[in-house]
Write a protein that binds this DNA or RNA. Structure first.
Lengths: 347, 347
DNA sequence: GCTAGTTGTCGAAGCGCTTCGATAGAATGG
DNA sequence: CCATTCTATCGAAGCGCTTCGACAACTAGC
């Protein structure tokens, strides 16, 4: 690294002491407008930037935020977590934090699963995005470093979270379908152990109930173990084979499953949306390239990352272990799978 | 952050001086096996880890590597750069470096396009993945920080690079087709200004020439301005409308274009691979989910990231400005678009 | 037995910053 | 006009680490 101006150089050139420069730098203590102005000018002239190691050493802070992501989540095609990360990165810059990103494997193994930035305590706070091993979370707790979890939560709710508002999403979906005169509204989901999936299902039930509609239980499928494409495929298949009265609309726990449903319906020559309307969840990239394009629930991923960082950095100076739970509002993206007249956006 | 043991604590407990502990820590100087052993034991007992700010301050090194990515590249669906990043992250850990990831926009704007880690000189080296603005690269050069570029290069070749071996890829494609008895082998590409695309084209020409085959120029299309799906679509369309004699096989500059080709061929009821065989480049996720699945050229993205880090960290201590150009070997992934009998792997 | 070298250890200075307590000087009040 | 308070500034210590030069304690050579 090149020789750069230090705070000393600034002090000398501005004819003030080191401490004064430091005070200006940090907007602390009393500094006369005149000296402040002078110091700031010199800083600009010299192109001075404080060295983060030095500052970190003095403050006993690292200036870093750790971002932990499950390996599988990060490498998946859908850039869901990538966007969350970008939102976080952006906001971290605003707060003068660097983000140290690391991925962890599902299987926990103390020797290689503990991110180095934790061992070295080189972060002032930690963001956890998506599902990671509980052991790891316990380890982090033991360090008493502030944590915010994104798109994931534990049953104990001991940690601050930033989650998408799945209830609202289900509500929007139901309302949309009601407005289109649907009354026979089914639900297809899986893996109720997953908090988000579970909430979507609860939201669906609740919204229908609010509307005074009692769905035929045959239109509700939540026994699939996972939420992949084939689970959706199999779920509709089973549902339609086991009941004569078809629903006119289906709310599906996520887009992947919805796309699976779509596949089966098309193979069965059931027209979407004419015979069955379909709403997914997540607004994945593929949801607008399928035919017909998929109506779905969207959430601002960048916002999730941003808000998580904001929550975290508020927490850091106070060393607070106060927990905050934030729900990010979602929105309905109307496409062809519910409204025939809609012009395709993608494809 | 919790109160952690410092080097002082270790020294006290091991009955040696600070300097001795430091020497042990860094494997420097002469330390008797006995003291070394003793110090190491105490380090383990205390769970001591050196604080990176302190070390950074003393060494005038940050222990960080900057990773610069164009915003568009990172957010795209295909996790190409994500994988490169992960490979880099992994290798960085092995060298005790942290990676600071940042994305930059295409449009250069000094006030917000210069990553903070550069302004603050908080990195010991920089990785640049994919195409970024030349202005930014010039800025980095002006800091004289070691740089390695991944999957991108400038015409001046002043920087170390880690690139995929596009020539070899084209060669493999041609050889594969020759083995399948194809002799009428065409090429579809676009944007020859892009180094990789250009090399693929050169590789194609060269390999055919080596085989003593002179392709009909009507089977070569390189006038498309970009390499997106529709460019591929339009390119075959134009080609097949303008010539009577069809090629029996096409090598396409990347999978996106190849998929565009596939679309047009299917719409025109031209059977793939029976009438025209197709080979893409990049092995994108979609290439195995299309029907028929696409034969393509694959490169180990993780390896690219890993090797880039290795190249960079070798460079850092020497402050060397020596440039190394590394080509990552590619491999052929045979799927249905060239061999009818192949069983589909994906889908 | 003395010099010359070698080896292992240590003390102190220094990296660039923050911050506490001290201190001049200005402003205020009686 | 002096005592008191307030304001702006500064010096020095300290954050946790590395490293250079010093120095005892050995070893080897003659």
């Amino acid at each position: 690294m090149l020789q750069r101006p230090t705070i000393k150089d600034v002090a000398r050139r501005a004819n003030v002491s080191l401490s004064t420069v430091s005070l200006v730098l940090n907007n602390k203590g009393k500094v006369s407008p005149k000296t402040r102005e002078k110091v700031e000018r010199v800083i600009r002239e010299l192109g001075y930037y404080p060295t983060s190691s030095a500052r970190g050493l003095a403050l006993r802070k690292s200036g870093n935020i750790g971002f932990i992501l499950s390996y599988d989540h990060f490498t998946q095609t859908e850039p869901f977590y990538t966007k969350i990360f970008l939102g976080a990165e952006f906001e971290a810059q605003n707060h003068n934090y660097y983000i140290l990103l690391t991925t962890v494997r599902k299987e926990y193994n103390p020797s290689n699963s503990i991110p180095r930035f934790l061992q070295e305590r080189n972060v002032d706070g930690v963001l956890i995005a998506g599902q990671v091993n509980t052991k790891l979370i316990e380890y982090i707790d033991s360090l008493s470093i502030p944590v915010v979890m994104i798109d994931f939560t534990l049953k104990n709710h001991k940690h601050s979270t930033v989650l998408m508002n799945n209830y609202q999403g289900a509500q929007l979906a139901v309302e949309h379908l009601l407005k289109l005169q649907h009354r026979k509204i089914g639900y297809i989901g899986g893996d109720l152990a997953h908090p988000s999936i579970n909430e979507r299902f609860q939201g669906y039930r609740y919204a229908l109930q609010q509307a005074g509609i009692i769905p035929d239980e045959a239109w509700i499928s939540v026994s699939q173990e996972d939420t992949k494409i084939h689970n959706g495929y199999n779920a509709v298949k089973d549902m339609l084979h086991s009941t004569k009265s078809m629903p006119t609309a289906l709310i599906v726990a996520n887009d992947a499953m919805a796309i699976g449903c779509l596949q089966f319906l098309q193979e069965s020559n059931i027209r979407v949306p004419d015979e069955i309307a379909l709403i997914g969840f997540d607004n994945v990239e593929k949801s607008y390239s399928v035919q017909p394009s998929l109506t779905t629930i969207d959430v601002n991923k960048y916002a999730m990352g941003e808000i998580a960082v904001r929550t975290l950095v508020e927490c850091i100076p106070k060393e607070c272990h106060q927990v905050t739970h934030i729900r990010i509002p979602v929105s309905l993206v109307v496409r062809e799978s519910t409204e025939k007249s809609v012009v395709s956006i993608g494809a």
